[in-house]
Simulated assay, not measured.
Amino acid sequence: MTIQGKNQRVQISLDLSPELYETLKNLAQQLDGDMAEVLLKGIVLMQVAVEAKQNGKHLWITDEKKTLETEIVGI
């Protein structure tokens, strides 16, 4: 992909439930961004999780003391 290609965008249409739309809108507000940014960050996070799983790794949420609080499964 060329540098010019990285700046191009493709528009898509999504059918979302009202609840998911509200979640997306609330996340955008919390990030001081827009819904496209939320979707982009979600996709990047999913990519990290899938690549980790393919490499035999796990995705965890820890507290400030690095104590395991949650393991993300089902990806």
Rank of each mutant, 00 (worst) to 15 (best):
M1P: 14
M1E: 07
T2L: 11
I3E: 11
N7S: 08
R9Y: 01
R9L: 06
R9N: 10
V10T: 15
V10L: 07
I12W: 02
I12Y: 04
S13E: 11
L14A: 10
D15Y: 05
L16T: 02
S17R: 06
S17V: 04
S17D: 03
L20D: 05
E22R: 13
T23I: 14
L24R: 02
L24V: 07
N26T: 14
L27G: 01
A28S: 14
Q29W: 01
D32K: 15
D32I: 14
D32W: 08
G33M: 02
D34E: 05
M35C: 09
A36Q: 05
A36S: 15
E37I: 12
V38L: 09
V38W: 02
L39W: 09
L40N: 11
L40Q: 09
K41F: 06
G42H: 06
L45E: 06
M46R: 14
Q47S: 12
V50Y: 02
E51H: 11
A52W: 00
A52C: 07
N55S: 09
G56E: 06
K57Q: 06
H58A: 07
H58V: 09
L59N: 01
W60A: 14
W60E: 04
I61N: 04
I61Y: 08
T62M: 13
D63C: 05
E64Q: 14
K66Y: 05
K66F: 11
T67F: 01
L68H: 06
I72Q: 03
V73C: 10
I75M: 09
